[in-house]
Structure formats: C-alpha cells, structure tokens
C-alpha cells in the first residue's frame, strides 16, 4: 500500500511536469494554429540556463528564475525570427521548420556545453524527505514539483479566464482577423503567448533536470509525451492538458511499477516480467488509441 501511494505520488509529479510542457504546446496551437516541435528545445534551454546560472552563482533559485527568463527570451526570439513566417503555412512546413530548429538548438547547445550531462544540486531547503501520514518517506523536491504544477495550473486558469490578456488570447483562438480589426496588436499577442509557453517549458526542463540530469536531447522524449497528452486532452484546451497530463503521468508510472509484477503472478515462465514491462512501456499509447476510438477530437477538444 505504501508502495502504491509512493508510486501514485510519482505519477502525480510526472503528470504535473508533463502539464507544464503540454500547456505551452496547446496554447500555441490553440491561439496560433502552430505545431511546434521545437518546444522540447525550449525545455532543454531552460534546463541548461538553470544549471549554468546555479553553478555560476551558487543559487538554485536564481537558476530557476534564469530558466524562465532564458526560455522566454529564446522563445520570443525564435517566434520573431522564424515562427512568425509559419502561421499562414500548412502544418507540413511548420513541422519541417521546427524540426530544423531542433537540429540548430541541439547542436548549438552541444557546441556551447559539450556532450557530457550536467548535474544540479538541490539547496538544503528543498532536499531531504518528508514523512507523510502512513509512515511514507517522500522526497520534498518531488512534492514541491507537484505544488509548482498546481500553482501554475491555477495561475493559467486565472490568466485565461479572468485577465484582459486572457480575454485576448481566447478571442485570438476564436477569430484572429476580428480581434486584429478591433485594434489588438496581434503580432505582439502571439509573441507573448509563445514566450509564455516557452517559459513554462523552460521551468519544466529545469525541474526535471534537477531530478535527472541536464543534457542535449533531453527535451525530445518529453515533447512526444506532451503530444500524447494534448491529443488525449484535446488540442487548445488548458483543462484538457491538465487532465491529459495527469492521466498519462499516472498511467505510465503505475503501469511500469505494477504491470511486471502483475504479469508474473498470472503468467508462468520467465517471459512474464518481460511481457509486463514491454506492455507497460506501450500503455500510454494504448490509452491514446482508446481515447481516439471514442473521441477523435480528444476529451475536451472541439471538432473543427
């Protein structure tokens, strides 16, 4: 039972991290109609910025701020130089151009920082474990990630639903020509949305980089998972991104923790654990296929 709770918390933490990635992707797609493969590169930029600043200043928190700023700046820059020319192009051009951006970002980072992974150390405030009810020792930092994810989710809902910027973003999703005609500077709005999504990705990169390591190419597996999340949740919906991220996070972590043992119990032979773990690694894609069968537009997506 304790093991189950621990794994459920891990799933929650993983889900929150996926949400940070998926939120930016789904916003950018919803508002600008752009599919951005380079979102994973912004995640990597955030992680490297955090590692570099934390090493230079000795402060992890300054590193986190740096991850937000660096990813936002990189995002805004990319938007102005490249992405802006792609809005009226078809998805194929967008995929290819942002694929090209990944190559540039990855090799550029390798050139700057080398191929060896960097590691981040946690400040004493965030390291160590807390005792949870039921006698479970759980790392404080992972709890902090869950907290940060929840705060970001609340902040985004507030931003989208209650602020003037949010009204403009929603209006931009509905009818971009109209709000441009009403005098909203649509180019600046797009840059802001893109930078906001980038900053969230950068933050996610810094947080995950702290748990694992910071290295070139770290953003790519996460990017594809974030795609799965927004396919399940429905493209363009923040709420869908949150629900989808938690579903994917939970399914993946619990599946990998429980399935091999489960198969060993019902199947005989040495293949049981193998079948279990192979199936576990495919579980979220099976989940995605099931959602597609029932609702091709995703749980909270609009058809159109």
């Amino acid at each position: 039972m304790v093991l189950f709770i621990e794994q459920a918390l891990n799933g929650l933490q993983y889900g929150m991290m996926l949400f940070l990635m998926a939120a930016g992707l789904t916003l950018v797609f919803g508002v600008m109609g752009l599919i951005n493969l380079a979102h994973g590169s912004l995640y990597m930029v955030g992680a490297f910025a955090c590692a570099w600043v934390a090493a230079a200043t000795g402060s992890f928190f300054l590193g986190l701020v740096a991850s937000l700023v660096a990813a936002a700046v990189a995002g805004a820059l990319v938007e102005v130089v490249v992405i802006r020319r792609l809005y009226h192009r078809d998805h194929l051009d967008q995929v290819l151009a942002t694929f090209a951006l990944i190559l540039v970002f990855s090799e550029g980072t390798r050139w700057l920082f080398g191929s060896f992974p960097l590691y981040l150390t946690l400040p004493p405030v965030l390291s160590g474990a807390v005792m949870l009810p039921g006698g479970l020792q759980y790392p404080l930092f992972r709890l902090a990630i869950i907290g940060i994810g929840a705060v970001v989710a609340l902040g985004l809902f507030f931003l989208i639903n209650r602020t003037r910027l949010g009204i403009r973003i929603r209006a931009g999703e509905a009818d971009r020509e109209m709000i441009a005609a009403l005098g909203v500077n649509i180019e600046r709005l797009y840059t802001i949305v893109f930078a906001l999504g980038a900053a969230l990705a950068g933050l996610a990169g810094a947080l995950v980089g702290t748990i694992q390591s910071v290295q070139v190419g770290m953003g790519e597996p996460v990017l594809i998972l974030a795609f799965v999340v927004i396919i399940i949740g429905g493209i363009g919906s923040i709420k869908g991104a949150l629900i989808g991220a938690l579903l994917v996070g939970m399914t993946d972590v619990l599946g990998k923790a429980l399935l091999p043992g489960l198969f060993a119990r019902v199947m005989v032979g040495s293949d049981a654990a193998t079948v279990g773990s192979a199936l576990a690694s495919m579980l979220i894609y099976i989940l995605m296929a099931l959602v597609l069968l029932v609702r091709p537009q995703g749980l909270y997506g609009q058809r159109g």
Partner: peptide, 11 residues
C-alpha cells in the same frame, strides 16, 4: 556540428 548547418539549410 554539421547537423546545425543542416538545420539552417532546411529552415
């Protein structure tokens, strides 16, 4: 780092 050059060319 030829892939960066390839990326720019593709772009």
């Amino acid at each position: 780092y030829w892939k960066a050059l390839l990326g720019l060319l593709l772009l």
